[in-house]
Design a protein around this nucleic acid. Sequence first.
DNA 1: GTGGTCTAGACCACG
DNA 2: GTGGTCTAGACCACA
Lengths: 134, 134, 134, 134
Amino acid sequence: MDVYINLDFESNEPIYTQLMHQIIAGIAKKELKPGDALPSVRSLAADIGINLHTVNKAYQQLKQEGFILIHRQKGVVINPDGVPQADDQYMNNLTSTLHPIIAESICRGLSKEQVLQLTGELYENFTKKEGGDK
Amino acid sequence: MDVYINLDFESNEPIYTQLMHQIIAGIAKKELKPGDALPSVRSLAADIGINLHTVNKAYQQLKQEGFILIHRQKGVVINPDGVPQADDQYMNNLTSTLHPIIAESICRGLSKEQVLQLTGELYENFTKKEGGDK
Amino acid sequence: MDVYINLDFESNEPIYTQLMHQIIAGIAKKELKPGDALPSVRSLAADIGINLHTVNKAYQQLKQEGFILIHRQKGVVINPDGVPQADDQYMNNLTSTLHPIIAESICRGLSKEQVLQLTGELYENFTKKEGGDK
Amino acid sequence: MDVYINLDFESNEPIYTQLMHQIIAGIAKKELKPGDALPSVRSLAADIGINLHTVNKAYQQLKQEGFILIHRQKGVVINPDGVPQADDQYMNNLTSTLHPIIAESICRGLSKEQVLQLTGELYENFTKKEGGDK
DNA sequence: GTGGTCTAGACCACG
DNA sequence: GTGGTCTAGACCACA
């Protein structure tokens, strides 16, 4: 069962980033499991109608962050050892990423409970079977 | 009482974005209150040693999002009516921003509780007096 | 004082790798010091007559390994904090890199002394003033 | 007595290169001696579960460098006359191979002594009986 | 067939 | 001006 890739070509978010996010989301939802094969650079690029270099950039970055392995000719697979667990560096990044987001949510009048509820719901959506994607 | 601006010129985050975030954080912490005056584009640019255009871009964007008002002669002030409260569009944006962040946190093995705790702590840091910002 | 870039377009070694090696050699020889500016992607590409993407790839990799920083618009500089020092991972890589090289040198009849002398000379060539490059 | 072949299919190093290195290491350790027979292309490929072409490529390259002889019917043997000793071309190759490796080790803060010690240890590991290879 | 490299030209965001 | 992104097409190494 494949993961459906949904790209927004109008978005400011680079396509290769969107692709990365979708694959990471697939892993989070367990639709992609360690060891699973991913489509080749060329076939995925053809499928979603983008350039193979764009797909390649997404794959390279996912590889560099430990989500996937790129075998020489065997293609691309989800890291069989699982994704590297959170370390200090990741937690720092996560904190600085969330920092401005939460600042704005406070300015916009969201209560702590609202923020936590939204966050919790998003988290659960990944862990539910048949979790509704965006 | 001024907000201290701390820019990281080596970050991937654009400087104008960092500037926006710092001002928004100042508002979230109530260090900047509705009606408070902000430095002029020129003086702020000179103070922190960056390009006029960069400060201008940050201000324009903050104005466009309703955080500040820019009067021709009276200068720049925090929106006296307060920041526009969360609407549907903002909530959608917030959701799509958080979505990939939470997806990765799940992949990296963070529990729901860990995510909620981090989020909660960040939220509280803004509402505490003398909240320790970075 | 600039570092002279000498590329071998006939070599099997990718051009971007050669470029990386030359810059690393420049750092080893102290011709490039922490904080020093490097040419922009475009100007270096024009200077040595290769595509800007090839230069970019070398720069990106050097950045990823901590040798250089890429400022948004200020251009490229040698990491002012110095290059990340050897860690376990680097030592493991170094060992597996040297392993087959030394194996072959043994088969070819080089004595331990010969290998150590060659290694030592190469090391010294970097630390000498006016060290003779290849 | 056979040499144990250990391939890493996730490495960036081509499989045929890994195979060559393992055979060369076997010769360096004297586990493979001049005149010793090597498995045929077919049987070796079957044993380690890789493509015929891959084994063939490794053998052809080893032959071309003088490590082995390939007789049409008699099979593959380690060169009975021993491996060609170091000539100028080999020394030049060795030097340019080591050059960038040592440059990086200097950047990463390794002292000359550390480099020589590592090199020496690796050398000794091949000449010791029961040398602990990876 | 696969991914890796290189080239080339275009547009955009940033400062 | 800078780097970042995307596209496009080519050749090669690998299995």
